[in-house]
Design a protein around this nucleic acid. Structure first.
Length: 303
DNA sequence: AACCAGGCGCATG
DNA sequence: CATGCGCATGGT
């Protein structure tokens, strides 16, 4: 590999690339990256140009290879920032581990999931669409619907007999025929929601930077739930995954409730005070706690 | 066949 | 503000 196309990112303490691989490869068919031989392949759009990168572990570094695209200094800096944000490499998670260790029900996680980072979804539009698709349906089906959408409307590049997709632009989804979405097994409401959100992004009335600029978490949540299709769960999930907001707890999430139940923290989903009590002990690390609880769920294996 | 799945919007108390 | 209900649609 031409060294001009290779970048090394130092791996921080309490970071596990294997946990990144586990999460991105956990028996689901995600259409926005490919895992092969311990490496992650992903296409990333930088100002209308699509680049393809490969990420693998190399000693104490993540090795980032630019397989397709122009490795200008600007692009390299962007890609490094992208990966650091995606894998949340700039956060010192030791304080979170200190909290986990004080809870006998959860302390084991500091060893079993050691170095697991909150894997993000940088693209806010993608994160919200993914939420809408996933509302109240099982994840296997949700990933299928997402794949249909992305393969139809998302930019594609080909490399070594594989096709790599990036998420469709809002401008594209804002103008799709609703019947085309319904043919992909979108329900009427979800098709309406996705098109509405796409129009909001396309018109500039919703975007990540403006959202980030709002004064606090409550304001950001309110700005999101003002849109049809974004309820409390979606708003919290999007803030957790795209803006890496610690307070983004997707309350009511079935996976979260199942994990709380399996750890004997609750026995009924109505025990909200117990949930609040738990999260109040993890102030500043709520989203990390959610992510670790999700990690503890056993994923169904597809045939 | 019935119940479930990483909810949401809207109408009522 | 909390609760209840209809909604869509595939998976098990």
């Amino acid at each position: 590999m031409n060294s001009e196309r290779t970048i090394l990112i130092p791996i921080p303490a309490l970071f596990s690339f294997d946990e990144c691989l586990w999460f991105l490869n956990r028996n689901y068919d995600d259409c926005l990256h490919i895992i092969k031989d311990g490496a992650i392949f992903k296409s990333i759009e930088i100002e209308k140009e699509i680049l393809l990168i490969c990420i693998k572990e190399n000693g104490g570094f993540l090795e980032l290879d630019i397989l397709v695209g122009e490795p200008s200094q600007e692009n390299k800096a962007y890609l490094v920032a992208y990966v650091r944000e995606w894998f949340d490499m700039d956060t010192n998670i030791q304080p979170f581990y200190d909290k986990l260790k004080t809870d006998g029900r959860l302390a084991y996680m500091t060893e079993r999931y050691k170095g697991l980072r909150l894997i993000g979804i940088s693209n806010l539009f993608e994160a919200i669409c993914w939420c809408i698709i996933g509302q109240q349906i099982n994840l296997s089906f949700a990933y299928k619907v997402k794949r249909r959408l992305v393969e139809r409307y998302g930019p594609r590049i080909d490399f070594n007999n594989e096709s790599y997709y990036t998420f469709p632009e809002p401008e594209i989804l804002a103008n799709v025929d609703i019947d085309d979405l319904k043919a992909m097994q979108f329900s009427q409401q979800k098709a309406d929601y996705v098109i509405g959100i796409a129009k909001a992004f396309a018109s500039g009335s919703l975007d990540k930077e403006s959202l980030r600029a709002l004064p606090d978490f409550t304001a950001r949540k309110k700005a999101l739930t003002a849109h049809k299709g974004i309820g409390a769960w979606t708003a919290n999930y999007a803030l957790m995954k795209s803006l890496k907001e610690p307070e983004g707890i997707p309350h009511g999430d079935i996976g979260l409730l199942n994990a709380l139940s399996s750890h004997n923290i609750i026995h009924e989903r109505s025990e909200t005070s117990k949930i609040e009590a738990l999260f109040s002990n993890f102030a500043g690390w709520e989203s990390y706690l959610v992510f670790y609880l999700w990690r503890s769920l056993t994923v169904k294996v597809l045939e």
